[in-house]
């Protein structure tokens, strides 16, 4: 699901594009402009490589961390149908992490290094997974709306320039569309169910609406200069455009089952044809990125414990005569 719409970048790590060979850079940019895909062995600017590793890695981390808030409901899912569907869904997400780590590895960073950076807090993942999933209705909201938001983002990115990432995303989006159906089905059953069920899903949406509005990142007016990334087809759509697209598609689906979106100012302006809404609290957004969200510490602690507990398995499986080979996904 779950690639964060917003891609955190530490500006201090930026590399200088002007240091690249001008002829190679021109040819690289011309290839992208012609719509060609860049493959692992092709020449690429250092900054392109860095940006892609960062983006794909963060996406992969989001998949495995995202498995935690939903995974905790597998053992509590009500009935065989929901239990089996949720198990399959969360398993898909972990499978996406596997695909994405492989895609990132083609750029020269090993899965082990990426996971170490995750558990050491150096590498980020989507902010939405730093919020708790308190009730079964959270499974509905995550599966329906956060997967939907991720699909908006990933369908755009699947038309990007880096071949292995695009191919991984195509497969991921195909599976995500089933996840969205699963989430939507739970959402509809709760929204049209008993008063208790309705209250559960309304409460879940009330809690998740702000993280959902955060999902695509701050307005492009507020966010960093992304011109080069757009030209290189690393970033394929603006934060504002994706958020508008999401609201267009999903606000009616939420309202049609009688669930109220907790923003009195949310409306589509008939003149501009754009959605207007209350700006979510962006300070909170940056605080969560910094590690101060409600569940950051817990999520990383769980991931760290899983890595620690599994260390003896990984060590035993490693053969002394094996060498690391970068995959060509």
């Amino acid at each position: 699901m779950y690639g964060g719409g917003y891609i955190h970048d530490d500006q201090k790590k930026k590399t200088d594009i002007t240091a690249e060979d001008p002829a190679l850079l021109a040819e690289f940019e011309a290839r992208i402009a012609r719509g060609e895909k860049i493959e692992p062995r092709d020449w690429m600017p250092a900054e392109y490589r860095r940006q892609l590793i960062r983006m794909i890695e963060q996406h992969a981390h989001s998949e495995i961390i995202g498995a935690l808030p939903e995974g905790t409901w597998i053992t509590r899912a009500p009935g065989f149908r929901r239990k089996l569907a949720l198990m399959a869904k969360v398993q898909d997400e972990v499978g996406h992490a596997q695909l994405l780590y492989s895609a990132a590895e083609t750029l020269g960073k090993s899965r082990e290094d990426m996971i170490n950076d995750l558990i050491n807090g150096k590498s980020k993942y989507s902010n939405v997974f730093n919020y708790p999933s308190k009730t079964w209705a959270d499974v509905a909201v995550i599966g329906f709306l956060i997967d939907a938001a991720a699909i908006v983002n990933q369908v755009a990115n699947s038309k990007g320039s880096y071949g292995p990432y695009c191919r991984a995303l195509e497969r991921i989006c195909y599976e995500e569309s089933f996840h969205l159906k699963q989430g939507h089905s739970i959402f509809v059953y709760l929204a049209t169910g008993t008063p208790t069920q309705r209250a559960m899903v309304q409460d879940a949406l009330n809690r998740w609406w702000q993280p959902i509005m955060h999902f695509f990142g701050p307005s492009d007016k507020m966010s960093q200069h992304t011109e080069t990334l757009m030209r290189w087809k690393v970033k394929m759509a603006s934060n504002d455009d994706m958020r508008q697209q999401f609201l267009n598609m999903y606000v009616p689906k939420i309202r049609e089952v009688g669930i109220v979106i907790p923003d009195p100012n949310l409306r589509k302006n008939p003149e501009t044809n754009m959605w207007e809404f209350t700006e979510p609290d962006w300070n909170e957004f940056y605080e969560v990125i910094k590690g101060n969200g409600p569940c950051n510490a817990e999520r990383l602690a769980v991931r760290r414990a899983a890595e620690d507990n599994g260390a003896w398995v990984r060590a035993a499986l490693r053969k002394a005569d094996q060498h690391y080979v970068t995959p060509l996904a």
Partner: peptide, 20 residues
Amino acid sequence: EWTGLGPILEEDIAFSSIAQ
């Protein structure tokens, strides 16, 4: 219950698949 907690991703996926 191994979902998300396996010693390697591939085992996480395998246990989940067997569980299903």
